[in-house]
């Protein structure tokens, strides 16, 4: 049975176009999958781009070892359902071998350590294109990011020397040793992603919805106290509250928000009303005003 007329929305159409360019222009692409809503959205868009064929590249997760257990369970199930290869590389391995040193103390986070593991994995598998869910509306430095962003051997981003991107023509020509970071949902906003998840009825990990959790408050931000991952002073009091997570990163740098939104429509309504930006709940960006730009130059996603 054929339906009448299709007019694909501009953002969705653009993302699908980008995915199809990636498989045509690169030999070994990979989708960087964190289990967060943005990478879950990417997976749906990739499905749409190649249907009825399977997604023609693997998913890769750089696991800090500090991920929410709900996310990990979700990740494994999704990859299985899609019949797509899932590659997992652990930050813990680099810590154990002494290759990187873990931060300690109050604001310790493994977020920075992901970069080293990611670069190792790119080299191990010879990936020439890494697809990620970063969006330009997230952060000032990301607002300048290209859709095809060329990185050198060290994963470095040379923000002053980026290729111009005209119309929707994507130049994926690179030298040996270089690779490209690809951002198909560059032009989506947080609200666009949530609205898409709602409209497409895409399943997301339970921690995105309001749930009861043991938490403590520090610097006006709400931290999970359920696991031992987040360092807590003795005087920081643990209480139980209804919270949800707006982004799902490493537990040590992802704060929760108070919320009663137990369904997707309520989450979307909350995002619409919110006066705090998404990354306002990311402690890693608060370290300094140029935190993200500095991390990106060093190969962070």
């Amino acid at each position: 049975m054929s339906l009448d007329t299709i007019k694909v929305g501009a953002l969705e159409s653009e993302a699908i176009h980008i995915f199809r360019e990636v498989v045509s222009q690169f030999e070994k692409p990979v989708l960087l999958f964190s289990g967060g809503k943005d990478s879950i959205t990417l997976v749906r868009l990739a499905q749409k781009a190649f249907y009825p064929a399977k997604i023609p590249f693997p998913l890769m997760h750089i696991d800090t070892g500090h991920n929410f257990p709900e996310t990990i369970e979700f990740r494994d199930r999704l990859a299985k359902e899609l019949g797509v290869e899932l590659i997992v590389r652990n930050v813990q391995d680099n810590i154990d071998s002494g290759k990187v040193k873990e931060e300690t103390g109050r604001y310790a986070s493994r977020n920075m350590l992901q970069t080293e593991t990611l670069l190792d994995a790119i080299e191990e598998f010879g990936f020439d294109a890494c697809i990620g869910g970063a969006r330009r509306d997230e952060e000032k430095a990301r607002a300048k990011e290209r859709i095809f962003s060329v990185r050198d051997d060290f994963g470095q981003w040379d923000e002053k020397n980026q290729r111009p991107e005209l119309f929707d023509m994507l130049n994926g020509k690179i030298d040996l040793g270089q690779n490209v970071r690809v951002f198909p949902i560059s032009n989506w906003t947080e609200l666009d992603v949530w609205s898409y998840i709602e409209a497409e009825e895409i399943e997301i990990p339970s921690i995105y919805f309001a749930h009861k959790r043991k938490i403590f408050v520090r610097d006006g931000m709400i931290w999970s106290a359920e696991d031992d991952v987040v360092y807590r002073d003795e005087e920081e009091v643990v209480e139980e509250r209804m919270v949800r997570f707006r982004t799902v990163g490493d537990m040590s740098c992802t704060a929760a928000v108070l919320s009663d939104a137990i369904t997707i429509d309520k989450v979307v309504a909350e995002i619409r009303e919110s006066t705090i930006s998404e990354r306002g709940a990311r402690i890693d960006d608060k370290r300094s005003e140029a935190a993200m730009e500095k991390r990106k130059q060093q190969g962070y996603f």
């Binding site: 049975m1 054929s2 339906l3 009448d4 007329t5 299709i6 007019k7 694909v8 501009a10 969705e12 159409s13 653009e14 699908i16 176009h17 199809r20 499905q47 749409k48 781009a49 249907y51 009825p52």
Partner: peptide, 14 residues
């Protein structure tokens, strides 16, 4: 488009 068939497609559609 994905798992559906259509009789007609408009400009701008992947």
């Amino acid at each position: 488009f994905f798992d559906k068939e259509f009789k007609k497609a408009k400009k701008g559609s992947s």
